[in-house]
Each structure stands twice: as C-alpha cells, then as structure tokens.
C-alpha cells in the first residue's frame, strides 16, 4: 500500500508507462482504460478493479433513433473518478492542441478527443469516436502519449503502449483533466443499475436501417461484454458474475460476425436480439447476495 506521500505525489509519465503491464486492458473501454492506468500507476496493481464495483446499464437515445448504454464521455469520466476516488480539475471547455504543452508540462494529463486524429491508433483516418489517452511533455517538439486501450479492430490491433508524438500531430480539439490520486478510502459498495431495457431493445428491433442497427448493436454488445468482464473481475467470489461474463462474450462475438454478414447483404442472424433481451432481463449477477 503506498504511503499518503507517494499517493499524492504528481503522477509521472514513467510510472504510467510502467503500470501498463499491471492492467487487464481487455476489461476496460476507451474512456475507462486510461483512468484505470492512472489508478494503478499511483496505487499499485489492482487499484483499478474498483471500476467494476458498479454495473450500470442505463441506455440513452442516439440522434438516429437507436440507443446506447455508453454514457456521454464526461459523465463516464465523472463516474470513474468517483469509483476510483480521483480528484482533479477539468480544463475549461475544449483545449486547442497548442495549449496542451503548457497543461502537460508538470504532470500527466488525461485527454479525450477524436480517435480519428490519434496517429497511434488503428482508427486514425478511419473512424470517428471519442477516445482517451494520457499525455505528458517529452520535449519542446514532442509529447509522450500513453494509452492502455486494447482491442482488435477491423483496421488492425489497438495495443497498450507509449509513443512520442509531435505536439502538432495530436488532435486539434480535446477535453483535458489533471488528476490527483489521494489515498483510497474503503471500496465502494456493489451496485447494479438497469433501466429502460424495453425501449432500448425496441430501438434495435424497429430501426428501419438494419445495417446501421447491426453496426450499433456490435458496439453495444462489445461494451456490455467488457462491462460484465470488469464486474466479474471485481466480484470473483460470485460464480454468476463469471457465468454472465462468458455469455456476454459469446453474444458479442456472434453479433460481430452477424454484423459483418449483414454488411455483405446476408439475412440478419436469428436469435441475437432475443439473446440480448435474455441477458439484459435475467436476474442480476448479484442475486445470490440478496
């Protein structure tokens, strides 16, 4: 257990790079993974597992009529900071790339921007989505970027690592936070929250653009599989949590393949939406605690 002095010391880029080997990165999404890395860098391996104390499935509507269980990035950052007992401040509004060297001069910053403009990712030039990374000053011309995200994408693998990137090559518009990691308190209580499942399922069943529905369904089942994996990791004494994790991973794999088939003009796979409904409406993995 780190002493309070070390826990409150400024985070260093080298401690974040060293902590890359302490995460199980395939349990975190693209916003969570680098907050998890910060927690492990400051407090040691396992600190980030607290993110799995909550299982929150609260869909929100998307502009095209579909829905997502993915919160707005700022909301998810706030939720993760609460679970990890991180304190800190967000830079006002959107940060332009030319302001980033000053912000990252003395400590590691956590930033969220468009993955399309992050040259270390397979999404670069391919797809737009919010993505987080840690950034510190390397020298006048370059930033040290650390990113714990781990995923196989259709454009190649995104793998945890550290890169020296010219400041000018970072996204031109970012949200930026500077975190402090105080000594951690008692673990947050286990909490499972599920609301709005009926309308969520109906949005996918009824959407007129079936290709678009399956693209989003792939994202949803990927997120839900990771979320259940993280919950299972934080509750390894609950067999139902591990069982749910396995079934979510199978569904995510089935939907990924189904989406690729639909993209090629094939019929929609039967049963995937029924399986999704079954998994979302069965008793929570914590039922054995009640």
């Amino acid at each position: 257990m780190p002493t309070p002095d070390t826990a409150t010391a400024p985070l260093t880029a080298s401690s974040c790079v060293e902590a890359l080997g302490t995460l199980e990165p395939k349990t975190y999404d693209c916003v969570q993974s680098n907050l998890a890395l910060l927690a492990n860098a400051a407090r040691g391996p396992g600190a980030s597992v607290r993110l799995g104390r909550e299982l929150s499935i609260v869909p929100r509507a998307l502009p095209d009529g579909l829905a997502t269980v993915d919160p707005a990035p700022e909301d998810e950052v706030a939720r993760c900071a609460r679970l990890l007992s991180l304190t800190g401040e967000a830079a006002d509004g959107t940060v332009r790339a030319d302001a980033l060297p000053a912000l990252a001069a003395e400590t590691v910053c956590y930033a969220i921007g468009d993955a399309h403009d992050m040259p270390w990712l397979p999404y670069a030039g391919q797809a737009h989505m919010p993505h987080s990374f840690l950034v510190a000053r390397n020298d006048r011309a370059t930033a040290l970027v650390v990113d714990a995200y781990d995923n196989q994408t259709e454009w190649g693998p995104a793998e945890p690592g550290a890169w020296r990137i010219p400041w000018a090559d970072l996204p031109s518009s970012l949200r930026v936070w500077r975190w402090h990691v105080p000594p951690e308190g008692p673990p947050p209580p286990t909490r499972v929250e599920r609301h709005g499942i009926g309308p969520y399922l109906a949005a996918f069943r009824d959407h007129p653009d079936r290709g678009r529905a399956w693209e989003q369904l792939t994202v949803e089942t990927w997120l839900l599989a990771r979320r259940h994996a993280l919950f299972a990791r934080a509750h390894d004494h609950l067999p139902a949590a591990g069982d749910a994790q396995d079934r979510w991973q199978r569904l995510a794999a089935d939907v990924f393949l189904g989406c690729r088939r639909v993209r090629r003009g094939r019929p929609e796979p039967r049963g995937a939406l029924d399986d999704l409904e079954r998994l979302l409406t069965e008793p929570a993995p914590t039922a054995e605690l009640e």
């Binding site: 196989q152 259709e154 693998p157 393949l257 690729r260 090629r264």
Partner: peptide, 10 residues
C-alpha cells in the same frame, strides 16, 4: 489471427 479469421470466414 482473430481479425483475419473473420475476413477469411466471410
């Protein structure tokens, strides 16, 4: 690998 196996399968 896992990504290419999907491409090959399709």
């Amino acid at each position: 690998d896992s990504v290419h196996s999907i491409d090959l399968l399709l």
